[in-house]
């Protein structure tokens, strides 16, 4: 458990951040920006778009923080908030600019597979719909369990299973097409 989340400290920080305390806002940002940024980057496949999406998440988050009622853990609530904001942000951007998901746009990290593997991953994901893409990122890249995904998406586990099933079948179709080229 990090210093941030122990002994109800998180609740205090959230409440201060909700009232515009910059130090508390920074503490929330430091705790969750890694998740938000990497999810946005994996989803968009584009650094610039991911930066815009991640900043949109935090700007909206600080506006809406006062609405967090503590029914679920803050982490789950924030993950759900991030997933919805990123999907909607990219939808809006696409409508405005008809952006395709870029290939080779993922960060050139040495351990993240070869450039070819990253290109292929981006290409496969680019052919999926937003929700299919997101659920596979949560499962394959974030390593979340079905019940964690259910919490984040606010749906039941059987619904997660059926969505993952459809997303995997769709991914396979795309893979067959790409492989055949």
């Amino acid at each position: 458990m990090s210093k941030y989340t122990e002994d109800g400290l998180e609740r205090v920080i959230i409440s201060r951040a909700a009232s515009g305390d910059t130090g508390a806002m920074r503490a929330v940002y430091d705790e969750y920006s890694g998740f938000v940024w990497n999810l946005a980057l994996k989803f968009t496949g584009d650094e610039t778009l991911a930066e815009d999406a991640a900043s949109e998440v935090f700007v909206r988050l600080f506006k809406k923080l006062g609405k967090f009622r503590g029914r679920s853990s803050f982490r789950t609530w924030l993950y759900r908030f991030t997933v919805n904001t990123v999907i909607n942000f990219v939808k809006k951007q696409r409508r405005r600019n008809s952006l395709p998901l870029k290939e080779s746009a993922y960060l050139p990290e040495e351990d993240a597979g070869t450039l070819e593997e990253r290109d292929l991953a981006a290409r496969l994901l680019g052919e999926l719909g937003g929700e299919e893409r997101m659920i596979l990122i949560l499962r394959e890249a974030e390593g979340m369990s079905y019940s964690e995904i259910a919490g984040v998406l606010g749906i039941k586990v059987p619904a997660v299973k059926s969505r993952i099933y459809r997303a995997r079948m769709r991914l396979r179709e795309v893979y067959e097409t790409v492989e055949g080229i």
Binding site: K42, Y106, L107, E109, D111, A112, G113, E117, R118, D119, L120, A121, A122, L124, L125, L136, I137, E140, A141, L171, Y175
Partner: peptide
Amino acid sequence: ILRKGLLK
């Protein structure tokens, strides 16, 4: 492919 391409 997704696991390897998106892992890091």
